[in-house]
Amino acid sequence: MPKYLCLQRSLSGAAEDDQASPAQMQAMYAKFNEWREKFRENLVDLGGRLGKGRVAVPDPAPDGPFVEVKELVGGYMVVSASSLDEAIAVARECPGLVRAGSGVEVIEIFAPG
């Protein structure tokens, strides 16, 4: 099955969300585990949060905006699915990923052969 790279992207214009209370965290924890159980077959690498980054460019640098990576991407994971649509469906159900201020970009990892 093809694999897909999922990148969490902050959507512009959204305010920082409120801190979750401990009770809410417990609920999120349970939801995440349910999701993980449900898509056990699809989850190749649960990835993690991404920190600071920088783009290395040839010297002299070409023209263009080079922004810090963290401003765009919050985290990554790898899922396997039969199609892009299915991969998106898996990512969409991941608790907390697709919500106000956050979306996910799903990209096929091309594997020839």
Binding site: Q19, P22, M25, Y29, F32, R36, L46, R49
Partner: peptide, 14 residues
């Protein structure tokens, strides 16, 4: 403490 719990929520399920 809030930070630690949030970290657990992120790391433990993975």
């Amino acid at each position: 403490v809030q930070f630690a719990l949030a970290a657990a929520l992120e790391v433990w399920p993975k």
